[in-house]
């Protein structure tokens, strides 16, 4: 099978790669580009561990083909911090003990970032439904929701 050449933007950088027609964006990120922060928990779009942001929208990168990234802008967990300065969501996840094993954490952070990008003041219910596509088996979600609330407050300039 011949490869497809793709030009795209990942975390603000121009990136080019070759991929197979049936290869997922997740496999491209992990296996071709070394961006292994996105995790595969199911490969069928049910767990959200591979959540990335494509042109501002959360997608399961296991359900996007590598070839579909052509001309798009992709954000992954590796681009979330600004150098050594963590994003408020990253800081609050650590402070609120919102992760235990941590395998779901990159996906939750990407999904939560996409939420706060469009809704800086979400209610608890809005957070819970927005994050319903991301599975966590360790925390029972309590501390994740609180971390997102705290990050949102901090980003709005309120005392957390």
């Amino acid at each position: 099978m011949s490869s497809i050449a793709v030009s795209t933007t990942i975390n603000g950088d121009d990136v080019e790669y070759l991929c197979q027609a049936d290869e997922t964006l997740l496999d491209v990120l992990r296996n071709r580009l070394g961006l292994m922060g996105s995790k595969e928990g199911c490969g069928t779009g049910d767990c959200g561990a591979c959540s990335t942001i494509m042109d501002g929208r959360v997608v399961c990168s296991c359900l996007v083909l590598g070839a579909e990234a052509q001309g798009r802008s992709i954000e992954t967990i590796e681009g979330m911090a600004n150098g050594s300065e963590l994003h408020p969501l990253q800081t609050k996840f650590i402070e609120h003990a919102a992760l235990q094993c941590g395998i779901c954490t990159p996906g939750f952070l990407m999904a939560a970032k996409a939420l706060l990008d469009v809704n800086p003041e979400p209610t608890e219910e809005e957070i819970r439904f927005w994050l319903a596509g991301n599975l966590c088996r360790c925390t029972g979600y309590d501390k994740i929701v609180r971390a997102v609330q705290a990050a949102a407050a901090e980003m709005r300039g309120e005392a957390a």
Partner: peptide
């Protein structure tokens, strides 16, 4: 704060795969 926190929120923690 947990010692493995930063690795896990930046995607650097290395799991089985």
């Amino acid at each position: 704060l947990r010692p493995d926190g930063v690795d896990k929120v930046t995607g650097r923690a290395r799991y089985g795969a």
